[in-house]
Computed example of a mutant assay.
Amino acid sequence: MKIRLERDVLAEAVQWAARSLPNRPSVPILAGLRVEARGDQVVLSSFDYETSAKIAVPAKVSEEGVALVSGKLLADIARSLPAKPVDVAADASKMELTCGSARFTLQLLPVTEYPELPTMPESSGTIASDVFAQAVSQVVIAAGRDELLPVFTGVRIEIEGDTLSLLATDRYRMALKEITWSPGSARAEGAALVPGRVLSETAKSMTNGEQVTLSLAGGESGDGLIGFAGDGAHGVREITTRLLDGEFPKVRHLMSVTPTLTVRANTQEIIAAVRRVALVAERNTSLRMLIADGAITLEAATGDQAQAVEALEAVVEDHTGQGLSMTAAGFNPHYLADALNALDTPYVNFSFTAPGKPCLLMPLADLDGEPSGDYRHVIMLMRLPS
């Protein structure tokens, strides 16, 4: 194999493909990055039996071939090369990189022992890359981090015609985002439980192109596969990952509530106030929201050592006709901050039903308008001391 390509093209491609390499591979061969030169391009790929990544970039190919080399090491080398064209040559045992006066020789791994990458499923539809990235970021914050409960670490993707829904929960909070996309069929439907970490990294890494192609195969079990394809800065990127096994909890009904009390306030003002007041919040204790006519007050404390109080203007509306049905609510300060930061509107609408019951947050473009239903974030309230 003999190729020449620009240093920035090589560095960017290697860095992207190497991101999917396992930190502790189950077998040493999975630490390798597969390099294939064919036609007028080089294809770099990685695979850990769960997630695969492949990127194709333009190159001057003098001799076609395939090689397998340590991905982390190649990434470190590519990042450190001077800004000059890079010549890459490989034989049966080693790969040599020459860039200006710098030269590196790497031992190759047995490419015949490397597992075959899964085939990208047939396209299910496309979506604007920036819309997809924003939607994923708004939902994935509610996904769990505990690998012992894998179902809660995933994001459920639901397809119904031209509506694509993303849903995640860690049992203490839930997030739902509904977006319009371009399905391959007007009657397209399906569902998949995708690892949240993979989905988040994928969405972030495909924002250079105009759109992302989503490809879904199989059912909702671990035998299913989902693929994403999009354009990067220098080439086409593809990622596939196995779907998570297990039944996702039925939480959609929590996204539609009939509130007895609503609170509307400036999003950035509440974010800033939560950040300040939470400084004195003791671990595993709540940040209290005291609700009154025309205002809310945020409170937190660390025993008798420190207290914080901040009042904010708000539009408070009771829907029972019997006066304020709630006067206080307890939030996990981190969950509240995450939910508020996920909003993309100047105002936020809090919907309360009863003390101790879940609270629904929705984006609000106008203080006097109706909340947008395309994004919903539910937080389970904490019990307040009587």
Score class of each variant (00 low, 15 high):
Q305H: 11
P333Y: 02
R24D: 10
A168R: 12
T126P: 07
L214N: 02
E282H: 13
A300L: 14
A217C: 08
G161M: 13
Y375K: 08
R187Q: 10
R38P: 08
V66T: 12
Y335V: 11
Y375A: 10
I3W: 06
K250C: 08
A92T: 14
K204V: 11
P121E: 01
L117S: 14
S215T: 01
N284T: 12
I226N: 05
M174E: 02
S185T: 07
S123I: 13
A143I: 12
A217P: 10
G303K: 06
P85T: 13
K357C: 12
N284E: 09
T297P: 04
D146H: 00
P28L: 03
V27R: 02
L243T: 06
I239N: 07
R276E: 06
I55V: 13
T267F: 09
R4E: 15
G190F: 04
V309M: 13
V251H: 04
F47H: 10
G330N: 11
F331L: 08
P115G: 04
M382L: 14
A308M: 01
A337M: 13
I379T: 00
L384S: 02
P355T: 02
P85R: 07
T126Q: 13
A102V: 15
K250L: 13
L44S: 04
E147W: 01
A143D: 09
L336C: 10
T302H: 08
L244R: 02
S386E: 10
T241Q: 03
T285P: 06
C359R: 02
Y172I: 02
S325Y: 00
D223W: 04
R145S: 15
M289P: 12
T258K: 06
N208R: 12
Q268H: 08
I379G: 01
W16F: 06
V9Y: 14
A278S: 15
M174Y: 01
Y335P: 08
P346C: 03
R4I: 15
V280K: 06
D318S: 03
G196C: 00
A217N: 12
R276Q: 14
L214G: 05
L68C: 05
A329I: 08
R38V: 09
P110M: 12
T327N: 04
D374V: 05
F331H: 06
L381C: 07
G323F: 00
E116I: 08
A59W: 15
A306N: 08
A75P: 07
